[in-house]
């Protein structure tokens, strides 16, 4: 792949208006079974390109498994899953996707800058690319707002700062699709806001597609589109406004709860019994 390091021009407007035809991620009956447990159960969804799509749901609902399936590191995936026009996990997709795991994948015994310098050297090796590397490292450090800590050892930083270093590494390659697993967990409100502004800048200026997971519902309002998940199923998909309108709720959180209530009577029998009914037998 020869597409590192350049700022990709924003995609032509036509892709924004008909996202269905050129979805960045397209899933049909996507299923993941681990042991006897169905972690993802026949999911159908599209992630539009150049947009911020939020993947929301309680902890353990399958968000990470879905993200791993998209980046191609998940085993036992069935159904159709196309990413940037190729089947997920295709070797050619690797350099086009940035994946930031929940626990930061960085070297704790290097400084922030040394971490980025190394990963940049892997992406653009050689003496000739030195100026380009310096520029992309500078930009990535600025993007995640870590310039004041650039020369601190990563191991001495806070958890939130370390996950921002991990995000900065993913930004070095200028990926077309950025998959972020709980990037704002444990961050102070101001930083969370800044990070969300960065996500929107990436989508608007660089045409990056973002798939961002969170279990904090108030972050949902910041996304262009939402995928609401619960227990391996897709509860709903759509814009935050559409979801609120559909359920007549004031916030996405209320909408989510409404959708959960709507779905539960069929699962729990009988609904009139004690507040904690026995688990339904499979």
């Amino acid at each position: 792949m020869m597409n590192y390091g350049r700022d990709r021009p924003a995609p032509p407007p036509v892709t924004r208006t008909v996202p269905e035809q050129t979805a960045a991620v397209r899933a049909r009956t996507l299923t993941v079974v681990r042991g006897h447990r169905t972690v993802l159960d026949r999911l159908d969804f599209d992630v539009p390109p150049g947009r911020v799509t939020g993947l929301l749901g309680p902890s353990g609902c399958g968000k990470t498994t879905l993200m791993r399936a998209v980046v191609g590191t998940q085993a036992k995936v069935t159904g159709t899953l196309d990413v940037l026009g190729r089947p997920a996990g295709h070797a050619r997709l690797r350099p086009r996707i940035g994946y930031v795991t929940q626990s930061p994948a960085i070297y704790d015994d290097l400084t922030v800058r040394q971490n980025l310098d190394y990963f940049a050297a892997v992406l653009h090796p050689g003496r000739a690319a030195r100026a380009e590397r310096r520029e992309s490292v500078r930009r990535a450090v600025g993007d995640v707002d870590l310039a004041p800590h650039a020369d601190a050892l990563a191991g001495n930083l806070s958890g939130g700062q370390r996950s921002r270093v991990s995000l900065a590494v993913a930004l070095l390659g200028t990926p077309e699709l950025l998959v972020l697993d709980e990037p704002t967990v444990g961050l102070a409100p101001v930083l969370r806001r800044d990070l969300w502004q960065l996500f929107h800048r990436l989508a608007a200026d660089r045409g990056t597609t973002l798939l961002v997971s969170s279990h904090v519902m108030d972050e949902a309002e910041r996304c262009h589109r939402l995928l609401l998940m619960r227990e391996g199923r897709l509860l709903a998909a759509g814009t935050p406004g559409a979801l609120r309108a559909r359920t007549g709720a004031a916030t996405v959180e209320e909408a989510f709860l409404h959708l959960v209530d709507e779905a539960t009577p069929t699962e729990r029998t009988p609904p009139t019994l004690a507040p904690r009914p026995p688990e339904p037998t499979p």
């Binding site: 590191t73 159904g79 089947p87």
Partner: peptide, 12 residues
């Protein structure tokens, strides 16, 4: 490390 670099054959 990469437990499953590719997906199995996809069924339509």
């Amino acid at each position: 490390t990469l437990t499953a670099p590719t997906l199995p054959r996809q069924t339509p």
